[in-house]
Amino acid sequence: MTSYEYLTGYADYDTADLDLPFTRLVDLADRRLGAGVICANDELFAERENLLLPTPALFQPHTFGRKGQLMDGWETRRRRGTDTAHPHPGADEHDWAVIRLGLPGVIRGIVVDTAHFRGNSPQQISVEALELPGTPGPRELLAAGADWREIVPRSAVRSHAANGFAVADQGRWTHLRLKQYPDGGIARLRVHGESRPDQEWLAALGTFDLAALEHGGCVDDASDRFFSPPVNLILPGRSREMGEGWENRRRRDGGHDWVRLRLAGRGLIRAVEIDTGNYVGNAAGWAALHGFDASTGADPADPATAAQWFELIPRTRLQPDSVHRLRPAGDARPLTHARLDVFPDGGIARLRLHGSLVRLG
Rank of each mutant, 00 (worst) to 15 (best):
N163D: 11
E311A: 08
A287T: 00
P56K: 03
L312I: 09
F117P: 00
R177M: 11
D30H: 08
R325H: 01
I151E: 13
S195G: 09
P21M: 15
R250W: 11
I110M: 05
P89Q: 11
E194C: 11
F117M: 09
R225D: 02
D169M: 10
D253N: 13
L51C: 11
E214Y: 05
T135L: 04
S239G: 15
E75C: 02
V37W: 00
N163A: 14
A146S: 12
P314Q: 00
E49H: 15
D95I: 10
G355I: 00
G105Q: 07
H160K: 12
I269A: 03
V127D: 01
E75V: 04
W96T: 02
A162N: 13
E200D: 15
I186W: 14
D321M: 00
D209W: 03
R317D: 09
T15P: 12
D224Q: 05
T76I: 05
G171Y: 08
E5L: 07
T84V: 14
W148T: 00
E5Y: 04
D220V: 06
V157L: 06
S239Q: 09
E241I: 06
R188S: 05
F292R: 04
G65R: 14
N50D: 06
R350I: 00
T8F: 07
S195H: 12
D17V: 15
R158C: 10
F22G: 13
A11H: 10
A146D: 06
Y279C: 03
L289A: 05
D19V: 08
R172M: 12
D299A: 07
D147K: 15
H86W: 10
D72R: 08
V358A: 10
E150I: 04
A40W: 02
L340V: 10
P54L: 02
L20P: 01
E43V: 01
G193F: 01
F64K: 08
F22H: 13
A204Y: 14
F226T: 08
A349R: 01
R262G: 10
G267W: 02
G164W: 11
R333S: 06
G297W: 03
R339Y: 09
D14M: 08
E273M: 05
G355E: 03
E273W: 03
R315I: 11
V231F: 04
E43T: 11
D221L: 14
S159N: 14
G184K: 08
L205N: 01
L176D: 03
F45Q: 03
Q180V: 11
R108G: 15
T84G: 02
P314Y: 00
A211E: 04
L268R: 08
F165I: 14
G285S: 09
P328G: 07
E140Q: 15
A211M: 09
Q199R: 15
L340Y: 01
T2E: 06
L351D: 01
L360P: 06
D198L: 07
V323M: 01
G206L: 04
R350H: 01
L52D: 06
L20E: 13
L70I: 15
E5W: 04
N41T: 13
H290A: 13
P320L: 01
L261F: 13
P21K: 13
G255C: 06
W286L: 15
D224Y: 06
E128V: 02
D198S: 10
Q123S: 15
D12T: 12
E43Y: 05
G145Y: 09
